[in-house]
Amino acid sequence: MTSSRRARRVEVARIVPAEASVAFSWVADLRTHPRWIVATRLAGPAGPGPEIGSRYTMASGPGARRDPGSAMGRLVVPDRMVVEQLERPSTMQARVGRTRLRKLGPVLLGDAGFDVVPLDERRCRVVWWEEAHLAGPLPRAVTDPLVGLFLRQFMRISLSRLSRRLERPGR
């Protein structure tokens, strides 16, 4: 029996040294994620840039970067997602950029996304949030706290990497 309650929200934010539209292009386009998200690669074809309805499978875990040409291996979790929301930010209009992805399993279900808050022409605040839970078979009361701890650390490290990446000229 599956629970219909929402997963506990995990959220990590970081001020990054880039104009909001630049940061948004990095977080909204899953094809750039392997360049800054820890132990992650795009599994399958990249397709065009993000659009509502675009589907992606990311492979995450300790073995994700070892052999990108192989099928999912041990210690690699497939994360299938579909883009459900894309709202580009505007520094001039102080408009927050938002992207939301629906996680389709087979391991994680729920929603995830990024909010990009313009601060000025050279900085923005990137908020990465996840409302994801394990598909089963263990009860969510047991797994949600553990998933939350893991996600929070994973997100902190990855946003730190994004910030360092955006500091570099030519990125």
Rank of each mutant, 00 (worst) to 15 (best):
R80M: 09
V107E: 06
Q153E: 14
A94I: 01
L119V: 15
T40F: 03
I15W: 07
W26T: 04
L101P: 00
K103D: 05
A112Q: 04
G47M: 03
D79C: 12
G47N: 07
Q93M: 09
I37L: 02
S90E: 03
P118C: 00
W26I: 02
R5C: 09
A7Y: 08
R55F: 03
M155L: 08
V10F: 11
T57M: 11
P169G: 11
T32M: 01
V96Q: 02
P145V: 08
R35D: 06
R95M: 02
V147P: 10
M92P: 05
A23S: 01
R8N: 12
R8F: 09
A59V: 09
C124T: 04
V116Y: 09
T143Q: 13
V12W: 05
R156I: 01
R152I: 03
P45L: 10
L108H: 09
R65L: 15
R80T: 15
R161K: 13
R125S: 09
H33E: 09
L119I: 14
V76L: 03
L30R: 09
P106N: 07
L134R: 15
A23Q: 00
A28P: 10
V38H: 14
L75T: 00
S160H: 06
S25H: 07
E84F: 06
L119M: 11
T2N: 14
S3Q: 05
A43E: 11
L42Y: 06
A20W: 05
R65M: 07
V96Y: 02
A20I: 04
D111M: 02
L138D: 00
A132M: 08
R122I: 10
A64K: 01
M1K: 11
M1N: 12
Q93I: 01
V127G: 11
A39N: 15
L108S: 08
D115T: 03
R55K: 14
A43D: 12
K103C: 06
G49E: 10
V16L: 04
R35S: 02
V116G: 00
A13H: 03
V10G: 02
S3Y: 03
L86K: 05
T99K: 03
V38A: 15
G69T: 14
D120H: 11
V116P: 05
W128E: 15
F154W: 13
T99C: 00
W26R: 02
V126I: 08
R88H: 13
E167V: 02
P34T: 10
A132C: 09
D144Q: 12
V147N: 12
A43L: 12
T91P: 00
V107L: 11
S158A: 09
M92A: 12
R156W: 01
E19A: 15
R168E: 14
D115M: 00
A46T: 06
S90M: 05
R95L: 06
P118F: 03
L166M: 04
E19H: 10
D79A: 13
D144A: 13
V116K: 08
V96L: 08
A18L: 09
F154C: 11
V126L: 11
R171E: 13
A132L: 10
Y56P: 07
R8S: 14
A46Y: 06
I157A: 04
R102N: 04
R100T: 11
R14M: 14
L138Q: 01
Q85T: 15
R6E: 06
G148L: 01
G105E: 01
P34D: 04
D120V: 11
I15N: 08
G73F: 04
G47C: 07
G61P: 03
E51I: 07
